[in-house]
Design a protein around this nucleic acid. Sequence first.
DNA 1: ACCTGTTACGACGCGCGTAACCATT
DNA 2: AATGGTTACGCGCGTCGTAACAGGT
Lengths: 304, 304
Amino acid sequence: MIGLGAISDTDGVDPHLLRSFVAVARRRSFSAAARELGFTQSAVSQQVAALEADLGAVLLNRRPVTPTRAGARLLDHAVPLLLRLDAARADVARLAAPPSARVVVGASPLAVTALGPALADVRREHPDLVVTVRVLGRSALIREVATAAVDVGLADGAVAPSDSLPLPDAGPLRAVGVLERPLAVLLPPRHPLAGRAGLRLADLAAAGWIDAPDTAVPLGRLRTAAGAEGYRASVRYEGTDVGGLVALVGAGHGLAVLPDPTGAALSGVTAVPVTEPRLVHRVEAVHSPTLAGVPAALAAALTG
Amino acid sequence: MIGLGAISDTDGVDPHLLRSFVAVARRRSFSAAARELGFTQSAVSQQVAALEADLGAVLLNRRPVTPTRAGARLLDHAVPLLLRLDAARADVARLAAPPSARVVVGASPLAVTALGPALADVRREHPDLVVTVRVLGRSALIREVATAAVDVGLADGAVAPSDSLPLPDAGPLRAVGVLERPLAVLLPPRHPLAGRAGLRLADLAAAGWIDAPDTAVPLGRLRTAAGAEGYRASVRYEGTDVGGLVALVGAGHGLAVLPDPTGAALSGVTAVPVTEPRLVHRVEAVHSPTLAGVPAALAAALTG
DNA sequence: ACCTGTTACGACGCGCGTAACCATT
DNA sequence: AATGGTTACGCGCGTCGTAACAGGT
């Protein structure tokens, strides 16, 4: 009889509204977000208005569409929140689903090389197994693992030796170190520093960089690691292909930090090890603790 | 016209249902949960049924009410999820609210001592300021900080020297180290080991312990730190009062690990430093990055 | 019988879409 | 005029409460 179905009083924020708000903020457009979400533009307008009324704060400036301070703050929460919401569903579904023979491995571009021997082991064990390897950007990787779109993820990053990677908290995931390699700065061959045996990161703050957050070590990471400003990007690289990035470095468009022996693909550039600060390129295998069957065997082989 | 208001397809899980599910699982009763939530028992039954239908899995065994495997898994997600949902609301609200003169400091029992000098500084600066100090268990502390029920939280834990505390991810909180002290085992005065100058944790696995997860170092933490089984509890202590715990140790009910100079309150027990593994008792100040006014000054004074 | 969870059913209100409106270029 | 966000309004579905029902002790 009472039935005041106001969701707001007891629950935090309505994720349905949150999802629309995020879409609008990302596309910087109500209409574009509406198309993406499969709603009318009017509905999205009402959703954002409802969220603003619920929170008692304006979240977006209109025309042009831009987050306010409160809106930006909400976005910080919204993305991991929606990720976990999906992760929760996927995690329960995984328990109900039968263990399948299909295996999907996700890997960030610099982590793929860590896959070699373990994959060989598993394929010897299961000869007619079809393995899918999917190369993904850093941010996408954890989302795919959490939502069970991939069974095992290989994440990478630059950290102090034997530190674990800082992964966004998308639920109870298991992460174990697989590989650590030294870091190197990629330089064009005729760069003044190309002959050096080692370089300190701090000496490169003023250089021109390529920001390749999904492929190389992100510039923000360099700044916090060096404890200094600088490391400005002249080019932003959004692909996930290492070769393309190497080519850009070779053509003199900027520097990038990668694991030292990137393999044979280093034609046209010079890699100089980073000696200071003490950082390594670390690869971790990330997967759900409830993994079973062949995927679990692969995860075990990776960590072994 | 289409209006198939099915929330499930695109959004993860409905937090409204989640909240009810958690309440039922905690109270092990639909009726008790209904009273707690302000619903009829029928409504809660329908909510859990809806959640189970949505996820395609039975979450609770009835009579007695007990989580299934899938339900337990969902609970792992649900608690931090609901926390973040509340945190998001609180965080936006904090931006809109005017900076108030009232300050609430939350602290776990072993962290209160770290408050001393910084609090004195701030009270000298603001003579007619009313400061509330609230002693909370570990799990409650982060929740209170995230939901802005307290302005600054002092969390504590046992970690390797200069490591930061592992805090549940309740959003973008700032945490800075305030204090590190050696750890000690509290022993009753006539305990065979009471005369030793130092003890190795590994040698105490078989002792009888008091599990005081909200007050002393939790036994689970000791196990992972020592990398060994054992450390079984003979008594579980649920208060947040250090004196009471000390008294229990003194009466021979079991051992506990605390920071070494716990202060003058150590009558009736003996504290022996833990020499192996290398662990310290660390206190961190945790607060929102958007803190302003007097609370921000206190946070700064704490970290200074 | 009593306690506790489920099912049936009806009412209220939220959350959409349609359509008219308004503002900015 | 065109583009894009807001407001008005009505309809449908979901959600809750009441009430009848069912399984255990």
